[in-house]
Simulated assay, not measured.
Amino acid sequence: MTTIIQADNLHKSFPTTTAIDHISFEVFEGEVFGLLGPNGSGKTTLVRLLNGVLTPTSGRAYVFGKDVTTDGSWIRARTGVLTETPSLYERLTAKKNLSFFGRFYGITDSEIPKRTDEMLSLMHLSDRADEPVGGFSKGMKQRLAIARALMHDPPILFLDEPTSGLDPESSRQVEDIIQELASDEQKTIFLCTHNLSQAERLCSKVAMLNTGKILAEGSIQDLSRRLFSAVPVEMELLNEPSPAVIQAVRNTRGVTVDSVEGTTILFHVTDKELIPSIIRAVIQEGGDMFRIAPQDYSLEEIYFTVQRQGGMTV
């Protein structure tokens, strides 16, 4: 896989605070990479560093193999950035907003109409193209801001809290657009968010940032394996389990029963390979098996476990 963003011991301090504290990570081409952390954790500062807007205090960062310290202008011409509070000219129409920003990106006058129409169509705003943006809903403005960041067709898109303040329907529309950009347009998406459920749906890899430090990095599956020694399992029977069935599960080596709720037994097992022996034990005691399913740990569980532990090996 091709590395498209790389940070090496990157550090940024200001007179009264350290915003980014000697972090290292890499993002591969075509990934949806989630940078997770609360407000004030350093996410926005990191985006500015990676786009060459801020200069690192120490360490290095590369985008497309170019040094952000010396090649910021070259990098910014090839990245799209959506800030948490994007600015649009509300008296201008959607089409005129995109045309205006397109010229800043260096798109020729002959290309701007075509590119503007493509972006409005992608964001499902074609029917509102000639209306002033001031009358748009917040979700429509957010979609238009994404279109603005995409006008010059950048390979990388930095999104800072792209669904902040949106209602559930508008949030899902923006998430669908992000998925489409990654899967259909082959964009690399650098997503800054504190919305854990959103990151779980969208991201192939995440890094957890707090007080400028990366506490953990990896795919959700990889972080689960590194954090938890036991696998949660849900077993559902056709009828409520008898005491003998429950005891058979408890007596199986490597099993810890968490709860019995109606026809469902919830337990943890130290190894998935033990599940067939659990099934045999239940059937032997007369249990009518309907369904058994190992469960994945949610990103929320992973995130708060990492926070409690104060991090893990990156």
Score class of each variant (00 low, 15 high):
residue 114 K to R: 13
residue 148 R to A: 06
residue 155 P to L: 08
residue 141 K to Y: 09
residue 34 G to N: 03
residue 105 Y to G: 02
residue 113 P to N: 07
residue 142 Q to F: 13
residue 63 V to S: 09
residue 131 E to L: 05
residue 291 R to P: 06
residue 26 E to F: 09
residue 42 G to Q: 07
residue 279 I to S: 05
residue 235 M to P: 04
residue 80 G to I: 09
residue 40 G to R: 11
residue 185 E to S: 01
residue 60 R to H: 12
residue 151 M to Q: 15
residue 187 K to N: 08
residue 314 V to A: 06
residue 203 C to T: 03
residue 181 L to A: 05
residue 40 G to F: 15
residue 132 P to Y: 09
residue 74 W to Q: 03
residue 287 G to T: 02
residue 17 T to D: 14
residue 120 L to T: 11
residue 271 D to R: 01
residue 296 D to E: 11
residue 239 N to A: 10
residue 135 G to I: 12
residue 249 V to A: 04
residue 215 L to E: 08
residue 11 H to R: 03
residue 145 A to P: 06
residue 274 L to D: 10
residue 53 V to H: 03
residue 135 G to K: 10
residue 96 K to Y: 14
residue 299 L to Q: 02
residue 108 T to L: 09
residue 159 L to P: 02
residue 308 R to S: 15
residue 44 T to W: 09
residue 242 S to M: 08
residue 46 L to K: 00
residue 109 D to N: 05
residue 244 A to M: 04
residue 93 T to I: 12
residue 271 D to V: 07
residue 61 A to D: 12
residue 143 R to G: 08
residue 143 R to E: 13
residue 278 I to W: 04
residue 31 E to L: 01
residue 9 N to S: 09
residue 248 A to M: 06
residue 213 K to P: 13
residue 101 F to L: 04
residue 242 S to W: 15
residue 164 S to R: 01
residue 140 M to K: 08
residue 301 E to Q: 08
residue 233 V to Q: 04
residue 187 K to F: 12
residue 145 A to T: 06
residue 14 F to K: 04
residue 74 W to D: 10
residue 61 A to W: 11
residue 185 E to T: 04
residue 313 T to F: 13
residue 38 P to S: 11
residue 249 V to L: 08
residue 65 G to V: 09
residue 87 S to N: 15
residue 244 A to N: 07
residue 112 I to P: 05
residue 260 V to N: 08
residue 137 S to Y: 12
residue 24 S to V: 07
residue 223 L to W: 03
residue 237 L to S: 12
residue 297 Y to A: 07
residue 236 E to Q: 12
residue 206 V to H: 04
residue 59 G to Y: 13
residue 216 A to Y: 03
residue 136 F to E: 09
residue 302 I to Q: 04
residue 66 K to N: 05
residue 310 G to C: 12
residue 130 D to P: 02
residue 67 D to Q: 01
residue 290 F to H: 04
residue 234 E to N: 10
residue 268 H to I: 14
residue 119 M to D: 13
residue 24 S to I: 04
residue 168 P to D: 06
residue 119 M to Y: 10
residue 20 I to P: 00
residue 187 K to V: 11
residue 192 C to W: 14
residue 170 S to W: 12
residue 293 A to S: 10
residue 273 E to M: 00
residue 95 K to M: 03
residue 142 Q to D: 05
residue 181 L to S: 02
residue 96 K to C: 08
residue 1 M to F: 07
residue 224 S to K: 00
residue 11 H to G: 00
residue 219 S to N: 00
residue 223 L to V: 02
residue 10 L to W: 05
